[in-house]
Design a binder for these strands. Structure first.
Lengths: 159, 159
DNA sequence: TATTGTTATACTCTATAACTATA
DNA sequence: TATAGTTATAGAGTATAACAATA
């Protein structure tokens, strides 16, 4: 849904490039059975011992989305839920050996997809593009405007 | 759901900037009762006589999404469906006077949101950013990888 | 009382399929 | 037969509420 371009249509440029890159990434990761989210969780879980909530915050997802993602990782034998030693409510996401191997490969895939895109640009443009996007991400486009949250009917009580 | 940044995380940069810009745009257009899609249709319908299908293609939306969008425009008194003179199946989307006025304002809003973002960049970076994104949009990131379409059960027949 | 993780489910969005009327 | 527009609805994705166990 490309808006119009009377002037520079930054919306269209960011939406389109972002969307196409996302489809490329999804297709590339799908070849080893991963989604972008699974990759994200795997990598962060490898860095240090982290609970589901911590991983959810790092990946900017809801805790319920996290449940589904960890379910998928467990089913694929890439990670396991382990009780935390300090908080019996919490679960540490432990990456299996197979998971660590997959994470190494998926990181290569991610880097490769990014490199393939950036390599099509002249080197000077490439550098400035990344610098400008970083400036926007940390500056004017750092935080979303929060949408008015829709009212939600109460869930049916369990009988 | 930010992936990881071992190298330059182009996915994160494009997703995040695009997402935040979209929320800004939605909030700004909402003040005059428009969605981005309504704005898009309005502007293209103003340029020349166009049918719903033509407008749908220009805005990269499905024809069924177009129906909903035109419904909203009609209800707001910004556009009307008129029979085509040459094809009795087709409807021309005619922008009302009020619609033309709103489109002028919404285009100002859109340009303003874009300008506000770009103005936070040094002028040289700004130019190169736009040039680089345009290069990606017309080159390596021109067309999405099509996802394997999910199989869809047949709809219940009308009795 | 608050928080972690879970389940169930409400909502939004979008697109497919079937349908009607034309071509 | 194919196409423009419409309606109904399937399905994906996601987030909210309630819940159980624990802090």
């Amino acid at each position: 849904m490309a808006p119009t371009r009377t002037e520079t249509d930054l919306s269209f440029l960011l939406d389109h490039t972002g969307h196409v890159l996302r489809t490329r990434m999804a297709a590339a990761l799908a070849e080893i059975g991963l989604t972008a989210r699974m990759h994200c969780v795997l990598v962060h879980a490898l860095e240090e011992e982290r609970t589901q909530i911590q991983l959810a915050e790092l990946g900017d997802m809801d805790k319920t989305t996290m449940v589904v993602t960890v379910d998928a990782l467990e089913e694929a034998g890439l990670a396991e839920r382990r009780p935390s030693g300090t908080d019996r409510r919490a679960r540490i996401i432990a990456v299996t050996e197979k998971g660590a191997e997959v994470a190494r490969r998926s990181q290569e895939i991610v880097d490769g997809v990014h490199r393939a895109a950036l390599e099509t640009l002249p080197e000077d443009e490439r550098e400035v593009l990344v610098r400008a996007l970083n400036r926007l991400v940390t500056g004017h486009l750092a935080t979303p405007v929060e949408a008015p949250q829709p009212v939600r009917r109460a869930r049916q009580r369990k009988k």
